[in-house]
Design a protein around this nucleic acid. Structure first.
Lengths: 158, 158
DNA sequence: GTATCTGCAAAAGGTTTGCATTTTG
DNA sequence: CAAAATGCAAACCTTTTGCAGATAC
């Protein structure tokens, strides 16, 4: 195979059912002998369920309501671990903190409001093809991309 | 007009001749009563001439060889100023420092080597069209995008 | 029981800011 | 000469790290 570019939902086992997604991540962790602590479980649930691309700070705040002693460092460590396993996608917003997607951990475009920071996904099947073209034309072995649009959402537009 | 999306070279006056590009930026600065200090001039030259997307740190090192008293803060301030004027494009590399393109200040895709960090431009005319589609489908008023591919370049591939 | 995880606090980048001094136009 | 830019150091933010004590399996 020419490159190791991540696959789409059907291939990667990403489902709209966040419960199934959570179980999938749990299985991956057990597989590799990572431990399921209460803090981790809480973080995993948030990442698997939320559709709004939370920041570490936001995850932290939510986890704290259930486990008040949880530390920011633990959230960072867990998110980093999941990123390494390919079970969470980090989205850099170029202003401030990264945001995380535990529901669709493969690269895909986002549309980000420069006013309220709302972030939505954008489906564009042609990107797999474009990625292949980039690999061909440049000789690079493309393994990842980030593609984000910025602008005002309908509400912030006034 | 539906959106304020930046235009391509022919429209924006970006030329392969870095001297002309430099003059263009100088004119923009004078226009707005910004002053042309020796430090600024040195930074502008580097940004207009270089094709390798330097970091602030790299610009700083180069400027220092001509003006040894120059400070990092001045480089940051100048780059921020030019970004605000739309005369420099900031490219986030998601590892470490941003890199800057003073030759093509409008959004365009990059291909970045995850080994040696080499960064090349990628021309894809169809993106203007895709941007329009994103605006239509989402209702967002798209003003900018970032689109970067990551992977090993032919040399780093071994 | 032991390897792993947590929580704390300190450190580490990268970038921004405040302000006195210098310089440009 | 007035307005703007420089240079320095301190401040800022986000993320990472080291390590002693706690905990999952």
């Amino acid at each position: 195979m020419e490159n190791s570019f991540p696959k789409h939902p059907s291939a990667v086992k990403v489902m709209d059912d966040s419960g199934v997604r959570l179980n999938h991540i749990l299985a991956r962790l057990r597989e590799r002998d990572f431990r399921i602590t209460p803090q981790r479980m809480a973080i995993l649930k948030i990442l698997a369920e939320s559709r709004d691309h939370p920041t570490v700070e936001e995850i932290y705040a939510q986890v704290r309501s259930a486990f008040p002693t949880t530390s920011l460092a633990t959230v960072y460590k867990t998110v980093t671990l999941l990123k390494g396993l390919g079970e969470v996608l980090e989205v850099g917003t170029r202003t401030g903190s990264s945001r995380y997607d535990g529901g669709k951990p493969y690269p895909h475009p986002h549309v980000i409001c420069t006013g309220c920071r709302a972030m939505i996904d954008f489906e564009e099947p042609a990107l797999d093809d474009l990625t292949r073209q980039v690999a061909e034309k440049t000789g690079y072995q493309i393994s990842d991309y980030q593609f984000d649009f910025f602008g005002l959402c309908p509400r912030c537009r006034k």
